[in-house]
Design a protein around this nucleic acid. Sequence first.
RNA 1: GCCGAAGUGGCGGAACAGGCAGACGCGUCGGUCUCAAACACCGAUGGCCGCAAGGUCGUGCGGGUUCAAGUCCCGCCUUCGGCACCA
Length: 867
Amino acid sequence: MTTRPARTDDPITPEPPAPAPVDRRIERYDAASVEPRWQATWEDLRLYHTDLHDPDRPPFYLLTMYPYPSGDLHIGHWYIKTPTDAIARFHRMHGENVFLPIGFDSFGLPAENAAIKNKVNPRDWTMRNIEKMRRQLRSMGATFDWDAEVVTADPEYYRWNQWFFLRFLEAGLAERRMSPVDWCPNDGTLAREQVEGVDRHCWRCGAPVQKRDLEQWFLKITKYADELLDFTGLDWPEPVKVAQTNWIGRSEGAEIVFTTTADQHQPGGDELRVFTTRPDTLFGATFIVLAPEHPLVDRLTHPAQRAAVETYVTQARRRTEIERLSTDRDKTGVAIGAHAINPVNGERVPIWIADYVLSTYGTGAIMAVPAHDERDFAFAAKFGLPIRQVIAPASVEAPAPDAPMSEAYVAHADDDVLVNSARFSGFPAPEGARAIVLWLEDQGNATFTVTYRLRDWLISRQRYWGTPIPVVYCERDGIVPVPDDRLPVLLPDHVDYQGSGVNPLTRDAAFVNTTCPKCGEPARAETDTMDTFIDSSWYWFRYLSPHKADGAVDRVLDERWGPVDQYTGGAEHAVMHLLYSRFFTKALADLGIVREREPFRRLFNQGQILGSDGERMSKSRGNVQDPDELVKRYGADTVRLFLMFMGPWDQGGPWSPTGIGGVARFLNRVWTLALDPHGVEPGDAEAGHLPAGQDYAAADRTMRMAAHRTVRIVTEEYEGFRWNTMVAHLMELANALMRYRGTEAASAPAYDEAVRLLLLMLAPAAPHITEELWSRRLAAAGEPWRSIHTERWPAYDESAVAAEEREVPIQVNGKVRDKVTVPAGISDVELEQIVLARERIRELLAGRTPDRVILAGGGRLVNVVVR
RNA sequence: GCCGAAGUGGCGGAACAGGCAGACGCGUCGGUCUCAAACACCGAUGGCCGCAAGGUCGUGCGGGUUCAAGUCCCGCCUUCGGCACCA
């Protein structure tokens, strides 16, 4: 590949910064002066601006989760982003055209909270933070392509959120429905984090939180539930796939129709559809439970029960879903005083409501089978409802219908059969389930169905700082989409919060009062804004053409660059962000806007850096670690390398700077090896002499072998993101070379080659010091400057890595007792002879003949077994 | 409760695919350099016994398979992360 610096739009006139002349007494590595100098040079040369149309090199799209501009770049950001930068540099050295963009996820609650609390403008607050974080991000020395930067709070970005919304609306993928929110009379809708305490009060005014039903917008992600379960072709961590699969929660079963009976207060005949995964237990259904929110509750409730029911419904609505679903709680519920007919046996069963049944799952109604469901069992036991066993292993005698049970029989034995189930008795359980549904289906009382835990995506937010939803409400025309040519619907720059959490857009007359695009009459603008997960569901498409004015996505570039080759970011986004992004991509593909149906081919979740107290870093805990101080003291390269060296990347852990000195020492050692090969250290008695028994040629071979073996292993470690062992192996190589420094072998070509390889291998991880040393080597050799980061990644020399001899550990009865050095190509027979002839082994055998001699792993180890 | 990940020296961690446990680094101890200190460099460093050679124990706990187990199997314990009565 080219040895010129990466392509830029400008003609290249590399003006290498004049390297300091190499003194006899060499200076130590001074990061504070070297690093900013190279960062400025890279920027001047536009070294990391990616030419997305480059016809020659294969594209590699590397994406890292864009940060929220909280205003502080902490050590956790470095932990994600600097190894990602090393990936970029590694791929670039393989001749790939790497695109590593960056941007800011700049809408959201924190800006608004700051606005309410400190009376600052959310936009000013956000933009100030972005400014600060840009500076901090640059101090990493990462190769972000800043030309591609995306700021989601810019109209240039969010107008396309609105455009997508309109396309979804046309395609029937967006719809408006009632949905409850947590509500405070003073501060309006509350996010989960704004509800505090067990008594659930408002974070600002302390008022008790209420539930309130609002008309809100949904995106129909459930339409894609089945496709989202398919991860074919994705190289993703298994736990993420498992988490998404559970989140979608597909279950197969049937809907069964129960019909309400008449009484003196209502005519009956209402259909109650229940969802069950166990139609085989239908004969054991002894009551019905509805979610308290079920639409028929009001209509069916008997007057005598009305007061109790209403109290219960109010209570249930005040509980969080987590509370309602908590297993620790006692079962609660109320009979509503109505009944329904079990279609399978005509039995009249009572209808209850209970908060353990959710209106959002299935049909919001269940048939309770206490004999075969633990929750129903607990409920029946508490309220004295009948329990009837209808499933039992064929191997035991069928129990009587009313035989007492101490617990629900839920376990699936292979020989489970239906019992007490009329003509279905004796059917094996799975066949029984099928037969019952088929039979009921004929009468119109059942259908096979699939239900998902996944719910449609509620995107409406009653907040200012987000993308306005582009619809208008007209007296005459109803819900009217804003036409494309009127986009973007601009967020006003200044709003008055009046010290309250209520969405200030609702009070902004200029925003709210608009005209209907259809009839031209006065109309009301939608004041809800979009969930910020919308922003992050397509930002990587926009990076390809951030300023494109006539479309959201550049289709040509999408064809060329999509899907993202590698995505890096935290595991906390395992479900929501990654699932929404997959949904968006599929929907956009169906709308013909993008080509691919999956956004991220390969995903890596790095671990999380915790505070030194082992807790998640947060401002409120005061355990946020600022890297600036460390960077000032040790330099960016040292901090980068230290973060990589700490442990496996997917592990994370509590932050502690202990040990960073070791990494700094290593970089200084590299500096010394490269610039002062002939110096000697006073502390080393052996300094200046080759290791005992080695001549110049042996030293040469040893150095070559060490360097090339390191290339072999380190290349694999870069590919697998195993940074900690990668750094360890580079340290080993440096230590090995250190042994030859100051000896005659330091003049050998092998020494110089080893230093060259060491620098190349270190370059992606520690880009500044290697660039500096590289420039000095070139200058010393009288060659023109070129960046080390445009060099090719080294290949190892097969002949150099092969050893002539190897050491074989010898075990007797599985314990290492001896070692022997043998020629590399030795045969098994010869090896065995040598081993058995060893004095130490003969001693241990004491005249006995070995039972077996095992040569393990092609003679890597010998085990002599004697009993 | 369910799902997922993990438990290895004083500490962070290493160990391909069952084959020398503890790579690399920190810390500690000893040394060289220095008037001295810092820096740098060299050496030692799992526990116990031993002057040494060497022995012995040792990867959360208890069993097992194997010539050989940190690694595989069975049964537990602990920690972290996620999910939450999903019918």
